[in-house]
Design a protein around this nucleic acid. Structure first.
Lengths: 344, 344
DNA sequence: GCAGACTCGGAAAGCGCTCTCCAAGAGAGG
DNA sequence: CCTCTCTTGGAGAGCGCTTTCCGAGTCTGC
């Protein structure tokens, strides 16, 4: 394995004393090749240290063995400080882990793509269409995003994690966010809370609005027609601020549903600062069951979001659609579950 | 933009009424093209919705505009449960975020590659050599890993995050782990701790062994020739177990250095369980300044690991080496800093 | 013993692009 | 007016691979 140019099919063919075509057949396991030649070729492969050039192969087969993980944002300028936070959040890693658990087994690679501008999205779709990747898993952050529709229009195999904000004929996996929020409501009510508030995420993001409506609906069903709500942006800081605001408005609160664990962590901080005991004075319930939940003090009762499973399913859906592009548009909704810890 | 086959250079050339070569020149901004034709060509590009096929381009230019992020493991079977944990850990996301902050600006993509078996590593090097990606950022997990050496041998541009276990002529960025551990020692000593223990990571991982030796050296310098140590594997659970063991051996401990924040979280749990107050009875200091540190109760005093910066620097080093492969092997060592919070 | 069916391997045509070479035309200098 | 140089655009040769098309050889059955 010297380090000049990498050996090519041609080289192997020369060493084996056969034609390029034959080597290609052997490598790709196509029958109709004499077992003897078969062996000769593999010997030559070993001797030369040959590894097929994936690019060249993809160019002709129109298959890359690569799937794009697209993080779709809507930034204005390129130095988006938000992205740093996004990657640091366990959310991203859990998705990657879930995806890899199935892609890896299939020998499919994951290429990370971040797009913000509409220009970037256009180019992304173009790249995808011209075979840059076989398909895309899409994580759409902005409340309204043209990307899902562009992908659908361009007939690019794609699966979203989290439903699109606008109805678009595209596969997706999602969590029954409303059910999860309802479970939180039931739990708080069941443990005797009567003055319950909510710290929500941004109202225009689907996952967030579903949690809001699910929670309100469940509360209303039990006679609480109005729920004091302050919204944050899913960061710990915003949760802390929101909790302070909520407390200022409703000092007698005895329970709060926080739309994700990170904000719940912040809320816990604000609560400690105001000398309220959790859960004795006020019960706190989070959402996601991220690693932050177990790290919190007290450990967070939360709604489990089976993100790894969802991502894995997204990968499976995508692989299936790549294999068979005419499949009917599908969606898979996961049911959340309540994880009972100490905070509520 | 209809959804049949994507338009090619040929199509654009036909519409513009020029040759493929001319279109290629215009697209790639090569001068020597009449400004008028220039415009005609761009019009044709707009009309056809042409997007260059990156694969075809890469095949001839031998440049892909892609960098691989290689996570090198040493698994035995493919269903490695460890990987899930690895991705969920903020470490992974922070690295990705840091890398993307520089790669994105250069229009370079990141392709994720997980390799475990030696077979897989061999194929990876082959793929890299045959131009699958322009270079690699390597995260090597196992204590002893043949990959760095293979990469160096094959002359593949590569940069490691964390120094290789064995000396290998390869670029890397690393943290002065020993200095960080020494800072922890100084801090514990300065606040009056006298019976100090340590929860270390696996002794054969470089980052871990540097922390061990740095800590011990600093302690020795202050007359503490021996430091009771229990090792864990960087997970929260292992930290909890280790703390219990340490406590059983040394009940009078009044300070402990834990080699990462996640284990420190576990240690805090064990401490609470044993009814010891932190930091009153025993001071705890972590390492990494991950998001777990602020989430902990009490918030963790810890050694800051500027991982995003390190990853960004790794990306810059790699880009430089891709541009100029004959560069001298370089390493950049980052200095850690102590973040003072409540636990010590 | 020979037509017909089958098996196997090679030649060669691309996949979509870049880039070297070359020819043609324009302009300048003698 | 002719030659020399310079600019500009086209033709075409690949990059490394797959795959179709064929021809040559092998085997069977009548």
């Amino acid at each position: 394995m010297r380090s000049g140019r990498a050996p090519t099919l041609e080289d192997v063919a020369r060493v084996a004393g056969v034609s390029r075509a034959t080597v290609s057949r052997v490598i790709n396991g196509i029958r109709n090749v004499d077992p003897q030649l078969h062996e000769v070729v593999w010997d030559a492969v070993g001797q030369t240290g040959y590894v097929p050039n994936r690019l060249a192969r993809s160019l002709v087969t129109r298959r890359t063995g690569t799937v794009a993980l697209v993080v779709s944002d809507s930034e204005t300028h390129d130095d988006d400080p938000f992205m740093g936070r996004f990657f640091a959040d366990p959310f991203f890693g859990r998705v990657v882990g879930g995806l890899m658990s199935v892609l890896r087994r299939e020998g499919v690679q994951l290429a990370l793509q971040i797009v913000g501008t509409d220009e970037g999205k256009k180019r992304l779709v173009g790249d995808l269409r011209s075979g840059q990747a076989d398909g895309a898993i899409v994580l759409s952050l902005p409340a309204v995003d043209p990307l899902p529709d562009m992908l659908a229009q361009a007939d690019v195999p794609a699966v979203m994690i989290g439903r699109p904000a606008e109805p678009v004929p595209i596969d997706y996996v999602d969590l029954a966010n409303d059910t999860g929020a309802a479970m939180a409501a039931e739990h708080l009510l069941a443990r005797g809370c009567r003055r319950i508030g909510m710290i929500s995420g941004p109202a225009d993001v689907p996952a967030s609005s579903d949690r809001i409506s699910g929670f309100r609906r469940a509360m209303a069903r039990h006679g609480h027609g109005w729920v004091p709500t302050v919204s944050g942006n899913f960061t710990q800081d915003s949760g802390e601020t929101a909790m302070r605001t909520l407390l200022a408005e409703q000092p007698a609160l005895d329970g709060v549903f926080v739309a994700n664990d990170l904000m719940a962590l912040g809320a816990l901080l604000a609560l400690r600062e105001s000398a309220r005991a959790v859960p004795a004075d006020i019960a706190v319930i989070g959402f996601d069951d991220s690693s932050a939940a177990t790290a919190a003090a007290p450990p967070l009762t939360t709604i489990r979001h089976p993100l790894e499973d969802m991502a894995a399913e997204a990968a499976r859906l995508l692989l299936a659609r790549i294999e068979e592009p005419t499949l009917r548009v599908a969606s898979v909704i996961y049911e959340p579950s309540l994880i009972h810890r100490a905070s509520a």
